[in-house]
Design a protein around this nucleic acid. Structure first.
Lengths: 347, 347
DNA sequence: CTGAAAGCGCTTACAG
DNA sequence: CTGAAAGCGCTTACAG
């Protein structure tokens, strides 16, 4: 064995006194019935002794796969997507896969000089076996979710948090509609009748679903009404939108916010108008990121299992790569009641 | 050309009417002086026509490199490390490198069942060309920063936010000491004389540096004193630590917090004690993550260019891989004065 | 200036 | 049960 460079399967073969192909069979777990148990044992121990680890590039070249999947997210600067990656990478690693991340071309942080290629995707730096596409715009749904750089054929895709897709593609979604219904029930149970919705002006399935679910939930309840304004997902825009809602003559007594960051903006709007949260105004969020418990009072919100979504998405993609057709999955959100919601002020 | 699978350099050669090696020379930009310009042009156009992209696995196998670097961070669930990754990946992509992320083994989210291998590192799923190691514990500094899984020889390492390392390893750090000095000067300029330090009880260089810098800055100013308490980096622990400081008989008029999340805990402690920020108590943070402007009042803090650190770290690692010895770099933080600091209350 | 050939380290028929 | 051999798609001496 050479001590300079890392050992190859030939080194292991030499050490064990067998041929290189036998090593490959044993270490690839294809040996039962083809190699004697004793030989298999000696190969394993030789490999261990030498600290052998197979060369990924060689295996990939031979097999025509990369054991790499691409996770596409809107941005990595938002607190929500780190955990999605973590979950996906954990499951991937268990199966010898790596995960590379790419942000959509319109994320200025990742593509300062503009996207080099056409289409909705930035070309990844290397070939990939599959794509995990998170938070797609409703319009770009399925067709464009198939990157064009794969030469011919189609790259297997699983969409995350992008809504149902029939049989076209496996999906993993959050139960956002149930989450919105839980928020509505909670607020109405507290006595609220005029609800404001501070909606994210972002063309993603999840936000359309949130708005639709709130509208539907309120419509089912006589005497309850909802007014809506929308904003970008940043605190300043959210504060402006919330202020517009709170300056209406029929001021809402509760503000349902499309995510936790927007809720932070609603807090600011309330304070600026001299309204106390929660005694004058109830506020709810969505996601349950760190921010939710950093705010004062702590935020009533719907917890979305981001890491679990990454993990389940990767599991589905692995199934797909193995030729199976994974069922659509929906991960339930959980209403977490904290200090930002209370009965509306007495009339 | 086969329409089934993706084109290889042989397909391009056939299309251009040249040999495969000529294609390789041209596309690898090694042609000047060895291939005629006309031939080079025709190869390029053939490659373009076919949508040729070189097979990474084959190149890696031939060259013995992976064009993959490993970014090791404490956790991806904290808002700080997403941008570090983004910056590193951006520079890497420009040079045909990919970045895989791994968290230290003690991150429970990423390693639910414990770390399989010994040593301070979880083994990455594949071979790598280099390591970007962020936020090392002071004790584990250099020696353990060299993963043992690279067979023989050493894997090139650049440390981020882990302090100076002499000539042992290239480093990229933040100017945290200057940042602390700026905070101190700001507070003392406002009239504060009793400062509390809510320190992160985390064994990383950056936090030791923050504490030391604050101690030194205060020691240089007659009549100014500092008291210190420490906590884990979460809002609840920070609230407790801040409360202990604020219940002292010589209550500080300003709380210098080791990061923005800790500052959020300080806000809570203040509110619980009926103290207004900033009229009764000034609070400062560190990092300037999203949270800083979500809080009310918005937080005076030191902005740390996280994405820039990722980018510069990758640049340094690329230099190192090219055989150069990149100089240590220090990225200055910037004091951002917002609404959480004001003169101390009149006596 | 151009091409034929070796070889990176694997996996997998195929022959014995 | 075991081994010799082909070949994945590149890069780079080497020969012409």
């Amino acid at each position: 064995m050479s001590t300079i460079s890392r050992p190859t399967s030939r080194d292991v073969a030499h050490e064990a006194g067998v041929s290189q192909s036998t090593v490959s069979l044993v270490l690839g777990d294809k040996w039962p019935g083809r190699v004697s148990p004793a030989t298999a044992r000696s190969v394993r121990s030789a490999a261990e002794r030498l600290g052998y680890r197979p060369n990924t590039a060689a295996r990939n070249l031979r097999l025509g796969t990369t054991r790499t999947v691409l996770l596409m997210v809107p941005t990595l600067s938002a607190p929500f997507f780190g955990p999605v990656y973590t979950g996906a990478a954990r499951v991937a690693a268990r199966h010898g896969f790596g995960v590379v991340v790419s942000t959509w071309p319109d994320d200025p942080a990742a593509h300062p000089s503009g996207s080099p290629t056409g289409g909705p995707f930035a070309a990844p730096h290397e070939a990939i076996d599959g794509v995990l596409a998170s938070s797609l715009a409703t319009s770009s749904m399925i067709t464009s979710a198939t990157p064009g750089m794969s030469g011919a054929g189609t790259t297997p895709v699983v969409t995350l948090d992008s809504g149902p897709a029939g049989d076209l593609v496996p999906t993993v979604d959050f139960g956002v509609a149930d989450g919105m219904r839980a928020i509505t029930a909670h607020l109405v149970g507290l006595g609220h009748r005029r609800v404001g919705h501070v909606a994210a002006a972002v063309d993603q399935w999840t936000f359309h679903a949130r708005a639709d679910a709130l509208t539907a939930a309120v419509a089912a309840l006589p005497g309850v009404s909802v007014v809506r304004d929308s904003c970008a997902i940043d605190v300043a825009s959210a504060k402006d939108a919330a202020t517009r809602l709170l300056e209406r003559s029929d001021r809402p007594t509760a503000l349902v916010c499309d995510d936790d960051q927007i809720a932070a903006g609603a807090y600011k709007a309330a304070r600026a108008l001299g309204l106390d949260v929660p005694s004058d105004l109830s506020v709810t969020g969505f996601d349950d990121v760190l921010l939710a418990t950093a705010l004062e009072p702590e935020l009533t919100t719907v917890r979305l299992p981001a890491e679990e979504m990454g993990a389940q998405g990767m599991t589905a993609l692995l199934d797909l790569l193995a030729g199976r057709r994974p069922e659509p999955r929906v991960l339930p959100g959980e209403l977490i009641v904290r200090g930002s919601t209370a009965p509306p002020p007495a009339l």
